[in-house]
């Protein structure tokens, strides 16, 4: 019996606390598998955000740090500068990265920090119960936008990947999704490539992953995948925005 698929050593044994059907679990797996397959688990250091993924330090089997809300890229900068040969990644949600941590991510990219950011965009604040995020879609309801996001009141959602792709040292910028198996496979490829580029020391790498939040979207897990495909993908096109010449 050949094993086609089994749990990666990059994840610990601890079951996750995520809500049923929340795709954080899939994204954790893709990051952990990538590190394992690239032989990087032994020198990886991950930085967990504040948000639903705040307990990620218990789920990844490599060394981890828990950063203050929005500050994971700064924390990762400190780690990578101390251990330049390590594989450093931040795992952040849209509240953490696109809101309070917007300056940190822009400047980590500006400096070309040789780290990989996994940016999970689920268009809402999950852990705190469904508030509007910078990535919340126009018209999408949230506990702080009860009638739906009004663009005249609080603007349009932030397209982080497109923004960061304008920064010279952000050498690899790709948006992926996990709403179906083909997309999951592509997401894995992008995440793995980001780590490879990091280890080549070419510059800052980020993979934005469109993700679901069944609980705060008020949908079943299966409906949430469908909602993501029909509403988020049109506004957040799934594509590569930048790849270094050396890797093309």
């Amino acid at each position: 019996m050949a094993v086609v698929f089994e749990k990666t050593k990059g994840l610990t044994e601890k079951p996750t606390h995520y809500c049923p059907g929340c795709t954080h679990g899939i994204i954790h797996r893709l990051v952990a598998e990538s590190l394992e397959e690239l032989g990087l688990l032994d020198k990886a250091v991950g930085v967990a955000p504040v948000g639903c993924a705040v307990f990620a330090y218990d789920y990844f089997s490599c060394d981890m740090q828990e950063a203050a809300h929005g500050r994971a890229p700064a924390c990762a900068t400190g780690i990578k500068r101390v251990h330049p040969d390590s594989a450093v990644f931040t795992y952040q949600g849209d509240g953490d990265l696109a809101s309070i941590g917007a300056a940190e991510i822009v400047h980590a990219a500006m400096r070309g920090e040789k780290v990989t950011t996994i940016f999970v965009n689920n268009a809402i604040y999950g852990m705190t119960g469904g508030q509007m995020a910078p990535t919340t879609l126009v018209g999408q309801k949230a506990t702080t936008a009860p009638l739906g996001r009004d663009e005249n009141h609080c603007g349009m959602p932030l397209r982080i990947s497109e923004m960061l792709a304008t920064i010279p040292k952000a050498v690899f910028v790709e948006r992926v999704s996990v709403h179906d198996v083909p997309n999951i496979l592509k997401a894995k490829k992008a995440i793995k490539k980001a780590f490879e580029i990091q280890m080549k020391g070419l510059g800052f790498t980020i993979v934005e992953v469109l993700s679901t939040c069944p609980t705060n979207w008020g949908k079943t897990p299966v409906e949430a995948l469908k909602w993501l495909k029909e509403n988020m993908v049109p506004y957040y096109p799934v594509q590569n925005f930048r790849t270094p010449e050396e890797v093309k």
């Binding site: 250091v45 500050r71 700064a74 924390c75 400190g78 780690i79 500068r81 101390v82 300056a103 940190e104």
Partner: peptide, 12 residues
Amino acid sequence: AAINMVYGAAGA
């Protein structure tokens, strides 16, 4: 950002 870089580096 600076103090959080300190956090990361000290933690490392």
